[in-house]
């Protein structure tokens, strides 16, 4: 996954990877590579295994078989979970949530100091919501919450940002704002992997598409993979890709 003008450098490689929860095998013997500097869209239906794959890449899920390896210089992950994963009952301000991204820089039992607060404020500034620092996270709109979580991931100073359904439940304006923010972060040489079940939402923002479907993964440059023929073959239904103004619209059942 990942194509750019820079020399090809593999960041993550998976070989013959098997991922499972109990007796439920989600992936069986898949292999792929993620290159440094890529902007990759991981697309598939709900329940298709996108989050499972993300968790394995992040090291939060141990493979049942095969291996997943990090290469080259240090990989520093920033992770943006699905918003619904975070319980709104917790009485946390935006700054409280963002500063969690700095916890890895602290020893066990270490207290949050001015360095961590400065990093958190810088991250809030980077995503344009520094004015919301004292607001309660649960009271924010979906787009503001998503920016908060991106800020938290940035506070960890990552070189690889992983986002799980970053536009879920958002209106068009908020979705576009988040995806443009992600594009700007990619321009700062951060490798980005976005998981989404909405192909049309991210198709025009990513360089590479990884289609997850029925326990398999198909990866390629966006323009090579997003053809009506490929998608029809993959999903088993008629699919048409319409081009216009440099953008693509995928029409299922067309």
């Amino acid at each position: 996954m990942g194509y750019s003008n820079l020399p090809r450098e593999v960041l993550i490689s998976a070989q013959n990877l098997t991922l499972a929860y109990g007796s439920n095998v989600v992936f069986d013997g898949i292999s792929f590579e993620i290159e440094r500097g890529g902007l990759i869209g991981l697309v598939g239906p709900n329940g298709g295994g996108k989050t499972t794959l993300l968790r394995a890449i992040l090291g939060a899920l141990k493979p049942r078989g095969g291996r997943i390896a990090r290469h080259g210089a240090e990989v520093r992950f920033g992770y943006v979970p699905q918003r619904r994963h975070l319980d709104p009952i917790w009485p946390l301000r935006v700054i409280d949530v963002v500063v969690m991204g700095t916890y890895a820089s602290l020893p066990v039992g270490g207290r949050i100091g001015s360095t961590q607060m400065a990093s958190a404020n810088d991250a809030l500034d980077a995503v344009g919501i520094e004015h919301l620092a004292e607001k309660r996270y649960a009271d924010l709109s979906g787009g503001q919450q998503q920016r908060t979580l991106v800020a938290r991931a940035l506070a960890a100073r990552p070189n690889f940002l992983v986002l799980d359904e970053p536009t879920q439940g958002m209106d068009l304006t908020s979705s576009t704002g988040i995806l443009e923010l992600i594009s700007r972060l990619h321009e700062q040489n951060i490798t980005i992997l976005i998981a989404s079940h909405r192909l049309n939402t991210i198709a025009n923002y990513v360089e590479t598409i990884a289609l997850v479907y029925d326990g398999s993964i198909h990866i390629g440059p966006r323009d090579d993979l997003l053809t009506g023929e490929n998608l029809s073959s993959l999903y088993g239904i008629p699919v048409e890709v319409i081009h216009g103004d440099g953008d693509r619209i995928v029409v299922f059942g067309g």
């Binding site: 968790r55 992040l58 090291g59 939060a60 992950f77 992770y79 979970p81 994963h85 975070l86 319980d87 917790w90 946390l92 969690m100 916890y103 890895a104 602290l106 066990v108 039992g109 270490g110 207290r111 949050i112 938290r152 960890a156």
Partner: peptide
């Protein structure tokens, strides 16, 4: 901070080690 982190967002906590 440790009790809060693993309680509020175990996935992010696992990601940060």
């Amino acid at each position: 901070k440790e009790f809060l982190f693993i309680s509020y967002d175990d996935q992010m906590a696992a990601t940060l080690g």
